[in-house]
Design a protein around this nucleic acid. Structure first.
Lengths: 242, 242
DNA sequence: AAGTGGTCTAGACCACGTC
DNA sequence: ACGTGGTCTAGACCACTTT
């Protein structure tokens, strides 16, 4: 039944792949329940325990959410719990107010060297650039510059951003079916330049965190590149090492 | 067999607790193999699958390491793979040279306000403070100031540090039986002061990463507090968001 | 009562490392 | 050949949510 040793892949991993493919194909939408373990077991012709182990792994990657007694749901960025999964910034005093996103700018351009490399697209391919401010308790704390491949986000405009109440990722998910799965951040310390210092209301030259993020969707394909400048006067970047 | 609903704890979690207790009591030492799943199942009077699930969770917390065909081993900071688990600093060019630790200073003191809070010890309790430099490819990149509760690390001296070839955590584990399990880092951007700028060979005022870390051992007891200043001219702090 | 995920068992067999 | 962890199954029962 199983393959020969060099490329051995256990059954539950093959099932996992099948479920991931269905997920990627949009067979079940974010926030909705997937079929029960019994149904999936019947569909794939394996035991419930094998489906279970496949789902366990996918849930471990935060793509599915189990709810005992109810079912297993497709993870969604609309879920408020998902907010701080990618935003690791915390106020020094434990004041957990939700940040507010203020769009500053949004325009189309062609991918330069850096953007094309980060997003794995052709040099000169259309991209969308957007700038925005993140406010905590109505104080500006982060300036973001976000690069998106134009191909996937045709209708995105400044007005869309202004009208949307919720996180950017929840917008991209709901309106464009684009699902942010994981991200990688490169952090360094830089001095605030003129325009940044004005936006964040700090002195020019103030040390800031530069947080460069590449965000990936299914199949480890990059779909977002951004650079954020974080003022750490009243906040810090929190990281758990396990 | 199981308890009533409000405090329900599945059997495998109780087994997990028992294994953790044995681990904490030092029944098996770092780097050594624990008994086989069959033996543990017999010892605790449960099925192998239940022991297995308990071990799965503990391995997920990086306290045990499974090796197919060989056994399950107690995780150790002597294992070279453990090195970059807590050090998230990476050279900009992918040059993965191992860092070299250079002790600068080591003295005893009494816990001040901050140290006592971070280490959860009494104000005025004995602590050990040590300063060191971390060099990548013989260039200074990090200055660390490390606070340890004096009670647990009696014999620690400057000479001990100089003589040790390996990571600090592997020293603390081997010589003092202290096991670093998880840590929490708070990151902000600061300007280099005079003495730091000299140690890192950067201009005074250069933006640096300030990385404050509290490290925990069994039972979520803090055993280390440190503050590192990272030069991010040729390195960055890498963080995976899942 | 019915349906879902969650736990537990017992047994068979596979892949891997060592003797 | 043997012992270890790893996979897979089938069935029983528990906990949780909804009807």
């Amino acid at each position: 039944m199983a393959q020969e040793s060099p490329t051995f892949s256990p059954l539950y991993r093959q099932i996992k792949t099948l479920i991931l493919q269905a997920l990627e194909a949009g067979e079940w939408r974010p926030g909705q329940a997937i079929p029960s373990e019994q149904e999936l077991a019947a569909r794939f012709g394996v035991s419930q325990g094998t489906v279970r182990k496949a789902i366990d792994e996918i849930a471990g990657d935060n793509l599915l959410v189990r709810k005992q007694g109810k079912g297993t749901y497709v993870a969604s960025h609309n879920d408020p719990r998902a907010l701080f999964r990618f935003l690791r910034l915390v106020p020094i005093d434990g004041d957990l107010s939700h940040p507010k996103s203020v769009p500053l700018d949004c325009w189309r351009a062609k991918a330069g060297q850096e953007a094309s490399r980060m997003l794995a697209i052709d040099l000169g391919a259309p991209i969308i650039i957007l700038r925005r401010l993140l406010k905590f308790a109505s104080k500006p704390v982060v300036v973001d510059e976000i690069y998106l491949p134009g191909e996937f986000f045709q209708g995105l405009s400044f007005e869309t951003l202004q009208d949307w109440h919720g996180s950017l990722y929840s917008l991209l998910e709901s309106r464009f079916g684009s699902r942010m799965i994981r991200a990688q951040e490169r952090i360094r310390a830089v001095a605030a330049d003129r325009s940044t210092s004005e936006a964040l209301k700090v002195a020019e030259g103030t040390p800031l965190l530069s947080v460069e993020r590449v965000t990936y969707t299914y199949g480890d394909r990059p779909v977002e590149w951004r650079r954020g400048l974080y003022s750490t006067a009243e906040h810090y970047y929190l990281n758990e090492l396990n």
